[in-house]
């Protein structure tokens, strides 16, 4: 069952940027693309746990600020020759607000 919770105004996240959400088990990064899509991923690169929220967002990908791994925002999968994946969480925009699925976030806390 999905349980959407209101996180913040879309405008609180810059276009082609990200903000961080604190959870009981580390941070989730919420990204906003140039086309105003939002994506939520664990804020840790599969390589050396770099803070993805600080990376450069381009198309539907983010480049990790530590060693330039490119991570797909849609799948969490590392692109190109690199191998690894970060967890993604359902996120959407409704009436200018960013919503996240709390059920998913809780499942993460249990896992």
């Amino acid at each position: 069952m999905t349980h959407w919770i209101d996180i913040a105004a879309l405008d609180a996240i810059p276009q082609r940027g990200a903000r961080v959400i604190k959870t009981g088990l580390g941070c989730v990064a919420v990204f906003r693309t140039g086309a105003d899509e939002v994506f939520a991923l664990d804020n840790a690169c599969p390589h050396k746990a770099g803070p993805l929220a600080e990376g450069i967002v381009h198309g539907k990908a983010v480049t990790c600020p530590l060693h330039n791994w490119v991570i797909s925002l849609e799948t969490g999968q590392a692109q190109g020759a690199d191998e690894g994946q970060v967890a993604t969480y359902p996120a959407r925009v409704e009436a200018g607000r960013v919503l996240l699925d709390a059920t998913f976030l809780r499942a993460r806390a249990v896992a």
């Binding site: 913040a8 903000r19 959400i21 604190k22 009981g24 809780r106």
Partner: peptide, 15 residues
């Protein structure tokens, strides 16, 4: 403000 988390769900997730 932009340097801080946009939301804090640490209590929410602990429920």
């Amino acid at each position: 403000e932009t340097y801080r988390p946009v939301a804090d769900l640490s209590l929410e997730a602990a429920e």
